[in-house]
Write a protein that binds this DNA or RNA. Structure first.
Lengths: 190, 190
DNA sequence: TGCACCCGAATGAACGTTCAATAGAGGCAA
DNA sequence: TTGCCTCTATTGAACGTTCATTCGGGTGCA
């Protein structure tokens, strides 16, 4: 993933950017080609079709997200601290990479999403779920289906980031902490 | 809104259904026409373009949602009870009307959404916000930007409903209460 | 007669995809 | 070294399809 062919990467990045600006319909392959400084035919050298381009873009985004979050992790933290750090760093990743946030949200609400493997589609929630199961073993968390809990947490992250990106609210350090606290209180045993 | 022309309503409902199944791209006007038992030209008697059809569909969905939720409201409840009832009945509305849920989620993550008026786009959150402000006056809720809180609540409702509709979890009475409780604990003063 | 409603074939633009042609890189024999 | 072959990467014009939209015409009611 790190060393994709120059052009292939340019195609992925251009598509990402264009989809953020114009949505799926609004980004014809011809425009992708122009933006990536590539001929139309070249795209089809790397991708079978527009559909597979978009599917691969989803993997690519998940990869970028994963890599970004891992950087922040540290060992010497208790469970709650670790939760705060994870919640906030994920949220900040989306804010710093709006193209990724917009693309993912569009993707998961499109007919593409049901078509990709479950393993693939649940990857971002899986890491959260492992974390929850660790918490459960310590008896810190509420009794609740871990999968459901993971989904709710993931959604709280995306929602906060999107609200910020849409300019509906402005999130600063204070608000990040408030939000993480809010979500924390919703999952922990009271 | 109640007494739309027969055909106009058929067009809206068909579009809603088709978009749920095939997404925006996947529902050509010709198919809408066929499904609604109407000629292609007829659609353009009621709507200027596909875009305005979709925009109106958004209003139409908001209207249906509003109407459904109002039915459940009662007066003789304290704030917390009222919150639970609202949260659960909204969530159930989306579950019972999957076309609406899928359409709204697709819509708000498409380039259409930024193009519609703020008044329009924030309508569903507004009612929640009034409710929050009432809670604030009684000092029941956490200190937090009410707008942000409203967004987070609304998203929790949609997320739960979608998780159920996607078959990722199965929500029964027990789970609805759990979820409402979880969200309640995240917004109330502890 | 006019107006609202409705029809569906026709139109033309937009778009995804293909393909024949070209350039360059590497290998290999003479 | 030179000439030749092959394989990959790249190009962009051309193709065929799909689709939103138009338009000329039809029906029935005021």
């Amino acid at each position: 993933m790190e060393n994709l062919a120059e052009k292939k990467k340019a195609i992925l990045e251009s598509t990402l950017q264009l989809i953020k600006e114009n949505g799926f319909h609004g980004t014809p392959m011809s425009l992708v080609a122009k933006t990536a400084n590539v001929a139309a035919g070249t795209i089809y050298h790397y991708f079978d079709s527009k559909d597979t381009l978009i599917m691969e873009l989803f993997s690519y985004c998940q990869y970028r997200m994963q890599a970004a979050v891992e950087q922040h992790l540290r060992q010497d933290m208790d469970f709650q601290e670790s939760f705060f750090l994870r919640w906030i760093s994920r949220c900040q990743f989306y804010i710093q990479n709006p193209e990724v946030a917009f693309f993912i949200e569009q993707f998961v609400n499109s007919p593409f999403y049901p078509r990709c493997s479950q393993a693939q589609s649940e990857r971002p929630q899986n890491e959260i779920m492992q974390f929850i199961e660790a918490g459960n073993r310590h008896g810190i968390l509420r009794e609740m289906d871990p999968k459901l809990m993971a989904i709710m947490i993931h959604s709280s992250i995306m929602t906060a980031a999107k609200a910020h990106l849409d300019g509906k609210v402005q999130l600063r350090n204070e608000e990040f902490k408030q939000l993480a606290q809010m979500v924390w209180d919703s999952i922990r045993k009271l």
